[in-house]
Design a protein around this nucleic acid. Structure first.
Lengths: 336, 336
DNA sequence: TTGAAAGCGCTAACAC
DNA sequence: GTGTTAGCGCTTTCAA
């Protein structure tokens, strides 16, 4: 302890936290001792005492998905602007186990938590009663117990598909879709948008071109188009994710099908990389910067409530914000 | 407190931690109360008491770089296998400020820390005396105070460049290089490899084709090749990073230069995405899985020492592990 | 089988 | 201007 080399523990605390009203001489002596002993404050103890950790947790399904990495970057900028830290944890894409584990045990390590819901079961989330302010990001959630920022998945998918139709496509495959639209998961929602766009145009959605996938990544996308080409005709692909689309572009190149002449492609997310593919990828953008600031705004409010120890009754109603998607036209479609 | 609804705090603790030697009846009663009150354990207090947090910190320069996301995924797999959590934090790519801030204050929140060194000054690191076991990942470090896992940057770059030379390239630009090779930073090291490969082949390295960049990302890469093409002839590009190469491929497409016929391209890192670009990217692989397990092995050792409160003298000497790079041949070079 | 008490390292309140 | 004290919420003796 620096106490030995100096004076008393409370004074050390004051010195380290730069509190006013101290003899300069004492402060200097303490800082010297601290330096010499290589003393470092124990943030665990400090947090216990202060009742806050100055950290915001972000739970993402995977750490290597461009979309989440890019969202995290925006969030980190915002969080650091308020003098806190953003901390990422992987939730793993498998419901119960991971979520329960992470949520129950470690969530209180954060002053606030942002949970990106992808494969998680919402019932699980509801049952957990978080002791920490939470904002959800992701799919559509039926129970309105949480503040929630979401993409308009159906609308975005409809936009993407309508654009393809407008560009002359008539056999539009949806990769990563779902035949079962009863879920509120991303694949189902985006399939619904694909279907609606067809109906809006007076077309019959080609059911055989719904391709269900068990992973949404480039390797799967590449394999999937190649298989699809063996069995069906198609003149366009709507990949439910840009990350997936990356593999689709590669798969089409394998097949010597030219994009956009023979096959047009649209992705979803407007990940930074999509501007740089060859051809560049037409996609559905979501304004990640807007998403990030919306999330942080909501979280800030909840954390304030928490700090004031407001009774549940006095807290604001849960808010649900839908982010309007927009079409980003690039080289993988003939649009314009 | 569940105490009110039950019995006494110590007993609650025992119940929650499933310790043996308890009346089943009491345990049930406690669990019921816990459930009803929605009680959750406070991990901060628990950590303070236990002296550990069960979390491993990973400091990365940015959260949206594919390489780090993919490394993090491997590390998370390993960490979770031992019942701990991996937690990511951004260090920001600007030396002093960020590192000092992060390191000093929050590092003790982790049982062990993995720091990826990119733009950080090593002097800073040395001066910090971490209270927590640390493993460094990254460039070559001169002072051997830390366990350290690194890519053979020079060797990898030499491999990349030699491959291009072998494939007939004679005007090989290095994008993201550095004219100043006195640093031990990545750009300098990879430039040295580029230079050595030329010398090995009896060629004079074309200094005018060293392109210094202030950001290593696709947008910069795209812009840089386009500018380079205006001023110089070149028949190959060695991009110091796959992420950068992504933009290079895009820039060459903008210029209607065909890859690999007119210009060959090699990247570095073997990021997952590189297999899916069009054309697919020849690159230098580093066995991320090997890196990850090496890191965790070293960290495990240090954490054990820490747990045993070994005196510094009794601790193992710092270890420096160099990962051997390997060439991954793909479509962006004429190799074979 | 359960409870009482001490203490992890810190800081806010108050006394000197 | 500095020291004393108490307590954040947990777990670990040790005693009952």
């Amino acid at each position: 302890m620096a106490r030995v080399a100096g004076v008393s523990t409370a004074t050390v605390s004051n010195a380290l936290n730069g509190r006013p009203g101290m003899a300069e001489e004492t402060r200097a002596r303490i800082l010297a001792a601290v330096d010499e002993l290589g003393y470092q404050i124990n943030p665990t103890a400090r947090s216990l005492r202060a009742g806050r950790t100055d950290a915001i947790g972000l739970l993402v399904p995977e750490l290597d998905r461009p979309f989440f990495g890019q969202l995290a970057t925006r969030l980190a900028d915002g969080v650091e602007a308020t003098g806190r830290h953003l901390v990422l944890q992987r939730s793993g894409s498998n419901r119960e186990g991971e979520l329960a584990a992470v949520a129950y045990a470690r969530l209180r390590m954060y002053d606030g938590v942002i949970v990106t819901v992808v494969d998680l079961d919402l019932d699980d989330l509801e049952r957990l009663n978080f002791a920490t302010p939470v904002v959800l990001v992701g799919e559509r959630v039926v129970p309105r117990t949480f503040d929630h920022v979401m993409m308009d998945n159906v609308g975005g998918a409809r936009l993407a598909t309508a654009h393809l139709i407008e560009c002359g496509a008539r056999r539009i495959a949806i990769l990563g879709g779902s035949r079962d639209e009863s879920h509120a998961r991303m694949p189902s929602l985006r399939t619904r948008g694909w279907r609606e766009a067809h109906e809006d145009a007076g077309l019959v959605p080609p059911e055989e071109l719904i391709v269900e996938l068990d992973a949404i990544d480039p390797a799967t996308g590449r394999r999937a188009v190649r298989e699809l080409a063996r069995e069906h005709d198609f003149d366009a692909v709507f990949a439910v994710t840009d990350f997936l689309a990356l593999g689709v572009l590669r798969g089409l190149a394998d097949l010597n099908l030219s994009v956009p002449q023979q096959v047009q492609v649209v992705g979803f997310d407007d990940v930074d990389e999509s501007e740089f593919t060859v051809p560049s990828l037409t996609t559905i953008g979501s304004g990640r910067t807007v998403i990030a600031s919306t999330i942080l705004g909501l979280l800030e409010t909840r954390m304030r409530e928490q700090a004031q120890r407001l009774a549940p009754g006095d807290r604001a109603e849960p808010v649900e914000v839908t982010i309007t998607p927009e079409l980003v036209r690039r080289g993988s479609t003939r649009g314009h």
